[in-house]
Amino acid sequence: MADGNVLAAPAPAPAAVAPARPGALRRLARRRSTLAFVLTVPLLTVIGGLVVWPFFYAIYLSMLNKRMTRFVGLDNFAFLLSRETFQLVIMQSVIFAVGAVVAKALIGFILAHVLHALPAKGQRKWRGMLLVPWVIPPAISTLAWWWLFDPSYSAINWMLMGIGAPPVAWLGEPGWARFAVILVNVWYGAPFFMIMYLAALKSVPDQLYEAAAIDGATGWQKLRYVTVPMMKNIIAITVLFSLIVTFANFDIVRILTNGGPQDRTHIFGTYAFQVGIQSGDIPLGAAVSLFMFPVLALLAVFVLRDVTRRSREMAG
């Protein structure tokens, strides 16, 4: 639009007489869009170097043989799909990501409501405290959780024994280990949902609730017919974003269980690391890490299309 302004402005008359090239160059340099582009070059370079290039390089790698000497097309993907361990990894990744995201969204939604109901004075203090898990680097907080789950020194088991329950092999038994990695991910990620939902709640005009109250809505009906529809876009975006990030999780599983026991907690990230780095089959590792990309990309397209449509219908 700024561009349009400049174009619309009458060109200075002498420029027409002067030699064409320098004038055109100067005009190009003076355009606001040119300046904007120049200013974003550093960022574009970083994104290009750290995101775009590795992404295409990973696609390239995933289509090579183990020694990286020959192009094999989609063979790596076909091979992965035929392996039982990888089928397990797909299932575990889906359980991990979907389970964690649903729990994070629910807990975040409830916490946001609780915070929203608090008087403004106390709200800041609680908001700050509830955000702590999200602010601590997960590698460090996961170590603390690892200690909590430790078979010998487990603080959780100590409490369980206190109430007479038998101790649990948190990270040694597949079911509990899966639960543990999800739990830590939820603990770490729920505050993000909370803060997003709190912001969304605050943006719902009070008068809508008053109108609903007069229309005859109970508390639940206000939640169902006013709050949730008004928050749909935020819910869709946070869930999509969190799903992508959770599918790509690495550190929590790596630190807590390293994929064990018997690969029963491996997810795409840790399995890619094991196959690609530890076992030295980089193309296969690349294939593992790219596996979810088409699914998530498609999901993102649909979700974001819905979001755009809704905001066009509702905003203003």
Partner: peptide
């Protein structure tokens, strides 16, 4: 309010933005 059998028109209308006109009117 819901049991007082009243209806109110607000200054900024307070229409539910996610509902159609029909749904807005039918909501109560």
């Amino acid at each position: 309010p819901r049991d007082r059998d009243i209806a109110m028109v607000f200054q900024n209308y307070a229409l539910y933005p996610h509902m159609t006109v029909y749904e807005n009117m039918a909501f109560g």
